[in-house]
Design a protein around this nucleic acid. Structure first.
Length: 167
DNA sequence: CGGATTTGACCGGCGC
DNA sequence: GCGCCGGTCAAATCCG
C-alpha cells in the first residue's frame, strides 16, 4: 500500500529505509505513569525526544489534559460524565502533537491498524492502532491536525504490558 | 504462509 | 424514540 512508499523527503532528517530502534524511544507509560494527566511537562519535551535517527519528527509537543485535546469531543459528547477516570485505573491518555508529514511514526512498538474513521470536525481521517503484543491492550489514535495538516496528533491510551518490543 | 492492512458495517452511548 | 458520532470488529486482500 503506501507503507512501501514512505520514502518521503523530510527536511532535516533522512528517512532511511532502516528503522533504527535503539532500545527505548518513547517511554510514554513510564513518563506518564502519573495519577492524572499532566498539564505540561517540559522535562519530557527534552528527554522525551532523544536522538531518533529513524524519526521524521522535527518537533514534538506534548499536550494532555481534559482541556486540550479531549475538549474536542468530550466537552459535549462525553462531557456528561468522565467515566474513563474511574475504571481506567491504569489507563493513561497522552496526546502528542508531532510535526511530521508522515503519520507512520515508529516508536519502536508494533502497532496493528484496526480502523479508520472520518471525524466530522476534521476533513482528515482518524486512524486507530492497537499494540500487536499479546496481553498488551495499548491503543494508539493518530489523526492530523484540523488546522495544521502538517501536524500529527498521536494519542496513546493505556500502558504496555511488556517493557518493549525487543526486550 | 503468515501477518498486516483495507474498507465497510455494526454497535453503544448521549443528545434532543 | 430517533439521530448522530465515535469506536470496534470482521472479512477480504495484499505484501514480504
Amino acid at each position: 500500500m503506501d507503507k512501501q512508499n514512505h520514502n518521503i523527503n523530510i527536511p532535516g532528517d533522512t528517512p532511511t529505509s532502516e528503522y533504527t530502534v535503539p532500545e527505548t524511544n518513547f517511554e510514554v507509560s513510564d513518563l506518564f505513569e502519573l495519577d492524572d494527566w499532566i498539564d505540561e511537562d517540559p522535562a519530557f519535551v527534552e528527554s522525551g525526544e532523544p536522538q531518533n535517527p529513524g524519526y521524521a519528527a522535527n518537533e514534538v509537543f506534548m499536550s494532555s489534559g481534559s482541556s486540550s485535546v479531549y475538549h474536542e469531543g468530550d466537552s459535549t459528547t462525553g462531557g456528561g460524565s468522565r467515566r474513563e477516570k474511574k475504571e481506567l485505573n491504569e489507563l493513561e491518555k497522552v496526546a502528542f502533537k508531532t510535526k511530521s508529514e508522515i503519520e507512520i511514526l515508529d516508536d519502536g512498538f508494533k502497532w496493528r491498524k484496526y480502523g479508520k474513521k472520518m471525524v466530522k470536525n476534521s476533513p482528515n481521517p482518524r486512524n486507530y492502532y492497537k499494540c500487536s503484543v499479546e496481553g498488551c491492550s495499548v491503543k494508539k489514535r493518530v489523526e492530523r491536525d484540523r488546522e495544521d495538516p502538517r501536524y500529527v496528533v498521536t494519542t496513546y491510551e493505556g500502558i504496555h504490558n511488556h517493557q518493549g518490543p525487543q526486550l
